[in-house]
Design a protein around this nucleic acid. Structure first.
Lengths: 202, 202, 202, 202
DNA sequence: GATGAATGAGTGTTCATTCAT
DNA sequence: GATGAATGAACACTCATTCAT
């Protein structure tokens, strides 16, 4: 009756279970869409009982939010890694573009739906925080930017990439596309830096 | 008093009913979110019977799609109008920015959710067509752009604006924000035009 | 404005409309089964408005009953005709068999379903009256039979034929089958007539 | 106290639940007709939740079919029992008649409606198989019959009894009626056996 | 007398959630 | 701590029926 060795990995076990559930949920979303995405189906695919699922997620909404967080495009952690790893030997702006592209890869359908859930689930104020890591990197490498400028740059690039993914363009991984995004970034930053450029026509 | 004129009012009536239903749906989405968005609730708010709703929309999915289309950010027609009206006396790029801003006004929550539905509902290929009008205007005013350049510019600006709306930033209607977007557009276009700018660091 | 000639065929017109409706209903039953059998669908197929249908049948139940009556296997009138026409030059019992077979032809599915409706719709006592014409003919040709004997003979033959139709046997129109039924009838009648045959083992 | 014995009660439990549901369905059919026969009503009368009902029957159609099977006149098992038990000390043909009569007892309305459902639900080919047990018994006791003869005899007797039940005749359980049916059977079999009887008039 | 748009009660069915084992 | 049978509120959708035109 000694279950001594069962007690140690308690937390690790729990984390693994959560991971299994979320992975099952993501797969289900990818394959069957939002219609097949029921708590019972998730539990079954995860190979656990529905009761166990409810031990880890108090209700479906929480599960969906966790999934959206995970599948949504820019996790702080993942993004940080990409910025760090990608930066080795690359110009900072190109590293940024690559990081963005990397953040958008794989599981398109699940991502698309997760994005929808995310919009429904996440309060407006929280949406901004997803760009914090990028803005920090920008500020460190490009000199401190006006908040509005940082906002425009990050969201513009994010938007171009997001659209490329969601519209399923074929040039997503082309060098030409990457170049174009780097161009956008550089042109804008150059403009911003020379504040003389602030005279815009009516 | 011949009934020749009966058919026209009849169609007008139908169009009005559709409009009433969609308006009710949008209001419901805005106030109660996706949870309160049931066909019965929509009918009730629209002041019609559920049966009548089903005369105009064969199932909920179609209703949702129509709503997403309507509430989604860029209707061809609405956008055209903004481009035309906004263009009077403005530089084309600024007119474009204003058109985008205009397209994003009001009913933030409904819009947010509708966008989610849109992503789930709309095939990837169809997403691109929403930018056709804008791309046309760009090509007419800026000289013909490479497809990738046009793509990057339209989606970048769209992305910046979309984020501004969804994140609920307070500078959405500030002149400074508009200027920043115009800057982005001009800087990028200038860069694109001088194809010497194609040398980008590794 | 003289609709003088419209008034004359009033009743004939009505009867025709009823006929058109019932025919449409039967066709619908045959092709789409009970699921597709809605009052609106019947009206559409009949080429009249739903309102008009309700002028002739106060509700669906009545329509169904009328249809069941019509499509059910043994109309008095139709049966009479078959007995009369079929009888020319045939032995009475064979004429009877042929009349039964004739009564079972065509529109199997509609008939099958109509039979179901009939059972639900018709009070038990009324079921018997469908055999009155046959029993009369039997009594006229075979000498008066005991009520129970007449009952057994008519229902037995009816049952054998009904099953042949409903089970879709391939020998339905074979001479061998007809002979077998005639045999049944003759053997039984012979037995009945010689009331000595009434000694049956325990 | 090992849980080895848990699985058997579980299956027994399930079988009991199915039985409870079908019984409730039959009662409902008997009392309220097809109109009152809704899945929710069945569940309520069965004393279970609607969700549980759907655990055992995936949709209403399946439930109806199962009920029709059960309430329909000749279950293989029930019939077999009647043939075996009834046979003790009785002539085979009389045992057969008694078996038929027994198979038709009780719950007339439910039976009538179930029969309708059966006709709509059951493919023609499947209808025949219900007579297999009877045909076997016939072949064992009467010498092998021609298929058509076996068909005619079984369906004729079945038809006479079915009508007696559905028409609610008062002589259903009279000895005279039973005798008449036995007469029918004997007369026909005698005729069949003496193949000389094959000469039938035109 | 015909029309058919509108009605809304009612139906089958799903699925998030609970809790006894 | 896991299980999964049971629950039942809630939903999408149908269709018999009405009645203003």
């Amino acid at each position: 009756m000694s279950d001594g060795e069962r007690k140690i990995p308690r937390q690790k076990r729990a984390a693994e279970t959560v991971e299994i559930i979320l992975e099952a949920a993501a797969q289900l979303l990818e394959r069957s869409g939002l219609d097949g995405f029921t708590t019972n189906a998730v539990a079954e695919r995860a190979g656990i009982s529905i009761g166990t699922l409810y031990r880890y997620f108090p209700n479906k909404r929480v599960l969906m939010h966790a999934l959206a967080e995970r599948e949504s495009d820019l996790h702080g952690a993942e993004m940080q890694r990409l910025l760090r790893e990608g930066g080795a030997g690359l110009a900072p702006d190109r590293a940024l573009v690559r990081a963005f592209v990397g953040a958008f890869q794989g599981r398109a359908r699940a991502r698309r739906i997760a994005m929808g859930i995310w919009f429904e689930t996440t309060p407006a104020e929280a949406l901004a925080s997803r760009f914090d890591a990028v803005t920090q990197t920008l500020n460190q490498t490009q000199g401190t930017l006006e908040p509005i400028s940082a906002f425009v740059l990050t969201r513009a690039m994010h938007g171009a990439l997001r659209s490329a993914v969601l519209e399923g363009v074929d040039f997503l991984h082309d060098r030409a596309f990457e170049d174009e995004l780097v161009s956008l970034s550089r042109a804008y930053l150059a403009q911003v830096r020379s504040r003389a450029a602030a005279q815009v026509s009516p």
